[in-house]
């Protein structure tokens, strides 16, 4: 209505304001004239502003979510053939640590030989492995998350020369001991080291995803 000339408004009033008694609208204050229409304009304007504000806010909030390249970097193919027997390598995927450990036959036997009722978080060693492309298990290669399930510290292992009381890993923050299957045995941690999503691309290469 900004561009409407005065006669236009008069015409608009004459043809559109029939609902109200003419004498009423003449005596009432200008703000009281045509109240429902004014309310409608108020509600419409506020609604449009709120919707507009939301539309502007959404990208501003959403930009803090993981970016495309960050998401794309959330998996990694790792060559496991070079890990020495009895040793481990540690990889970071999206900033999170993972352990890949080439277990000796003694370590495998120790992991497999523990009765389940002695474990705070019962899981068999086989449950913690992922089959090779041909369906067989590869117990020599154990792949776990490198985050202690207590408060998120990174446990030490064979590369740091301390494998704890059970030959697996030891968390120096609050003294959690993990066995050679990465299962919690002693200390404050409530759960076993998590097994990440991974698959064998070939028998010597695993693809770990977050």
């Amino acid at each position: 209505m900004i561009f409407a000339s005065q006669p236009d408004i008069q015409l608009f009033r004459q043809c559109c304001l029939r609902k109200k008694n003419v004498s009423d609208s003449q005596t009432a204050s200008p703000e009281a004239v045509d109240e429902e229409r004014r309310d409608f304009i108020h509600i419409a304007a506020v609604t449009a502003t709120v919707v507009g504000a939301g539309a502007v806010a959404y990208p501003l909030v959403s930009q803090m979510n993981p970016a495309g390249d960050t998401k794309a970097a959330s998996s990694l193919e790792v060559d496991t053939s070079k890990i020495p027997l009895g040793g481990e390598i540690r990889v970071l995927i999206g900033g999170k640590p993972f352990f890949l450990r080439h277990r000796t036959s003694e370590e495998i036997a120790a992991a497999a030989g523990v009765p389940l009722d002695r474990l705070p978080d019962p899981q068999t060693d086989a449950d913690r492995l992922v089959p090779l492309p041909d369906g067989a298990l590869n117990p020599a290669m154990l792949i776990t998350s490198g985050t202690c399930t207590h408060l998120g510290c990174v446990p030490v292992g064979p590369s740091q020369g301390n494998t704890g009381d059970y030959g697996g890993w030891y968390c120096p923050c609050h003294g959690s001991h993990y066995d050679t299957s990465g299962r919690i045995r002693k200390g404050p941690a409530p759960k076993n080291l998590a097994i990440p999503n991974y698959e064998y691309v070939t028998p010597g290469v695993v693809k770990i995803s977050l």
Binding site: A67, T70, K96, L210
Partner: peptide, 26 residues
């Protein structure tokens, strides 16, 4: 990590704050 303790939405908030699976450049 404290935000991760919030039920249901905690992990989503955590990822949103960090802009990724962990604290990184972003």
């Amino acid at each position: 990590g404290l935000f991760g303790a919030i039920p249901l939405v905690g992990e989503g908030i955590q990822t949103w704050l960090m802009g990724g699976p962990s604290i990184g450049n972003q």
